[in-house]
Amino acid sequence: MTTYAAGWLRCLAVGATVLSSGPEAIGQTGRPPAPNTTKSGTVPRTADGQPDLEGVWNYGTEMPLQRPDELAGKTFLTPQEADAYRAQMAARRKERQSKPSRYSGEVFDDVLPKADWTKGTSLITDPPDGKIPEPTPLAKARRAAQQAAFARGEGPEDFGLADRCILGWSTGPPIIPGNQSNIVQLIQSRDYFVIHTEMIHDARLVPLDNRPPPAAIHQYSGISHGRWEQDTLVVETTNFMPLGVGTLTFRQNGGTDDSMHLVERFTRVDATTLRYEFTITDPATWTRPWSVAFQMRKTDEGIFEYACHEGNHSMETWLENARAKEKAGEGSAKKRPN
């Protein structure tokens, strides 16, 4: 965008007062909603004049990624329906906590911040049914192969990227709220934006220029470049490994491929709120692109060092168990957790 055009659009943005407070309702077209314009003056700026996205942001939410089956067809709830649904969720949580678990229960953000169900019923804004699109046959085959490998446990590579502490959990890319460590640190200079995740200590470096990525190099977090579109930072990421992204969601779907193209948008809404959106396209994995939007809240929390691989006792345990089962002559009918 030329400086002239950007300046003209910035003039239009002045005086616009629409502020988002939750996931958007789905339009008839199923397209993701347009980025919010911000009230000029509520967005702090850096010394370089950019919107200031710096800080530690918490993106925990009770809103699930995909629309729950019992809410099928409902793009938003009435206030009474929202209260009733929240009561249902609380009852289920109570039941879950009464059962023995592999985890102590304190690990998870079990009481996640409330979401506005009158504005949406899933973090997915597109497709309109609020569900991850149908996987391709290749993705289904990959998922089946991964499940079989996990059950065999013949070596570390039979486990997921997160289990191996290579790439993990809610921080993707892309960022998807999970049940723990929903926290990310953003740092910016004039020429670089950094998405610094806690799990697993990944400083995703985004040069703010239009350099094309090298054609034949792949990285677990892909290779990113970014640009400012008005007050929104747009980050494009490609060059992912052909092995699959390690986030929990993607494990359930068999991971992604080196054809994955991710577009993320970061918009500082006000002093305490940042809007995050992404559209993910991977023709090898899903039959169509899909998009997500949610908000992050500024927090005083620091991010911890998460030395996952250095303390990965689980890997030893899983492999020892697999060898013990083979010795005992048991079948390998072990189910993949989560």
Binding site: G155, P156, I166, P207, I223, L319
Partner: peptide
């Protein structure tokens, strides 16, 4: 341009650490 590529080397250390727990030694 200069670019920092990440050397995420965990996968190359797995045999050094867990190799003795493989079903078939490498």
């Amino acid at each position: 341009p200069s670019r920092l590529l990440k050397y995420n080397c965990v996968e190359f250390a797995e045999d050094a650490i867990y190799g003795h727990l493989r079903k078939t030694p490498k």
